[in-house]
């Protein structure tokens, strides 16, 4: 771990023999937005994961569509890579429209 001497985090919980695998749950709400991560749950298979996600995460009209994804299938970026991954975008302010000064006489730009 770069420049960080705190104990290394575990990537994920040790898989217990008898427990069902973990699934991540995504919901699309009524308003046409993208599916959004809402939480996770354990289920023996995909059908049960969907059924449980419906019971646990949509009791109050939270959504119109559900995705469930085995947590083990998700590859996540590492917190240690935060700088190399995301810092370079910070100094490219010319990517934002506010960088450009538009003369007041010019309209609709």
């Amino acid at each position: 771990m770069s420049g960080n001497d705190l104990p290394a985090p575990q990537e994920s919980a040790p898989a217990p023999v008898d427990d069902w695998p973990l699934w991540e749950v995504f919901i699309r709400s009524q308003h046409g937005l993208a599916h959004k991560h809402v939480g996770s749950l354990h289920a023996a298979d995909a059908a049960m994961a969907l059924a449980n996600a419906r019971d646990v995460y949509t009791r109050r009209n939270e959504g119109v569509s559900l995705w469930v994804v085995p947590s083990a299938q998700i590859t996540a970026s590492s917190p240690d890579d935060k700088e190399p991954l995301f810092e370079p975008a910070k100094d490219k302010i010319f990517r934002h429209p506010g960088f450009y000064k538009v003369p007041p006489e010019v309209k609709n730009l």
Binding site: A13, P14, L22, G39, S40, R59
Partner: peptide, 27 residues
């Protein structure tokens, strides 16, 4: 019934949060 069902859900959300710290729900 709806209230008690909510409480089961609360338990699940919280076990899920604990699991992200590297413990298993079973344990």
């Amino acid at each position: 019934l709806a209230k008690v069902q909510d409480e089961a859900g609360h338990g699940l959300y919280l076990y899920g949060a604990a699991e992200t710290l590297g413990v298993s729900r079973e344990a």
